[in-house]
Nucleic acid binder design. Structure first.
Lengths: 208, 208
DNA sequence: CCGCATCCTCATGGATACTG
DNA sequence: CAGTATCCATGAGGATGCGG
């Protein structure tokens, strides 16, 4: 990226993460450290040369580090501590995007893993009191678990542990619910989502 | 901007504000509504065709609106309510940029008005208890006033009102102080800044 | 296979001149 | 003053190649 030549924090940030695709690469690594192939899968549409270029630049800037995963010679990419601090800006942009998401997927590709960032970003900005709960999320793709604890909200791949309830919906409606754009009752009356198990737990988690 | 084709809030945000220069245009309008000429001045380095293009796109996206300022036929650009909500993401990126700012200007251009975003972004994330105060800031360029009230922290052009104190420093040191990167005592011992008036007010404002 | 590098084509950005 | 028009440089996208 060519320099803006401005002594301004925003301009300096954009010189690091302002290139096309760059922040989406960070998004993927915020979901989990990953190999090149996983990144290419999680970033539908990216050209392989661009992915390689972005990873190189992010590493040079100190946002990403290459490391050897597991036992052997498998290269893995992960965020540095400073890179991981991009969670704040990214969650902030996800919240800002709510008006852009309500129109639904419209043929765009979707991966359930993206919800691991979006749902906590939307919920934690809106729900103040937290009742601990574990809620399964089925939105198409691998099942997820929304985990509400005293220390915060997170969404992780579901590993078969015990759940208080399970919520099944399409991604757009789950996001709308997390954003508080409509109520759980309305959504359910319209058949947009289904709940199994302890409904009160779901209601508390979404403050709906 | 070409679509990423991903049903993800971050991707959809970047389709609106991800183009080069775009978020810097928003920065300028967050400082104050402005005419074309003011924007060109506040965005050193931008080409006129790009500024016109970005304003067109931002208007089409609903982030910016053109309006007639004052009495007559003078066109002015301002953020829509949704556009103004980009303050959160932008402040978040400014905080993230702290490690990029400590190396100083290095020949980059600087405008005092950029501090009206940066200083509150850094201070309000770090200082919890607020003692109301009005502190003049002299950093090169037009004088500013840091205004601390119960409701928040803001930096505005100084209009000659009464001040509790005045702080003179170069931009990099003021940012370091606002970020808590070093203490007021250290900075002053090194001759990096000077205070006139009520020193305790300055100390309280910066929690130093 | 996986992890890129190369090559080519087309879109976008940048600098500057110009116009209503 | 507020932009357009133009022309050149750079970067993105897509296909393919290639070494480990």
């Amino acid at each position: 990226m060519r320099s803006y030549g401005q002594f301004c924090g925003l301009a300096r940030s954009l010189e690091v993460i302002g290139d096309r695709w760059t922040l989406l690469v960070v998004r993927q690594l915020l979901i989990a450290p990953a190999r090149y192939r996983d990144l290419a899968e999680g970033l539908p549409g990216i050209a392989t040369n661009l992915l390689a270029d972005r990873l190189r630049n992010l590493e040079a800037a100190g946002v990403v580090e290459r490391r050897l995963a597991g036992t052997g010679s498998v290269v893995e990419y992960a965020l540095t501590p400073w890179g991981a601090e991009l969670r704040g800006p990214i969650e902030s942009l996800i919240r800002w995007s709510t008006p852009l998401m309500v129109r639904g997927p419209e043929g765009d590709s979707f991966r359930a893993e993206w919800l691991t960032l979006a749902v906590p970003a939307l919920l934690s900005a809106r729900v103040e009191v937290r009742t601990p709960a574990a809620i399964g999320l089925e939105v198409g793709g691998p099942p997820l678990r929304l985990s509400v604890t005293d220390s915060g909200v997170e969404v992780v791949p579901h590993d078969g542990r015990a759940l208080d309830a399970t919520l099944r919906a399409d991604p757009a409606h789950l996001l709308g619910l997390a954003a508080g754009a409509f109520t759980l009752d309305d959504a359910r009356a319209l058949g947009l989502l289904a709940i199994d198990g302890d409904e009160a737990a779901v209601r508390a988690a979404f403050a709906a």
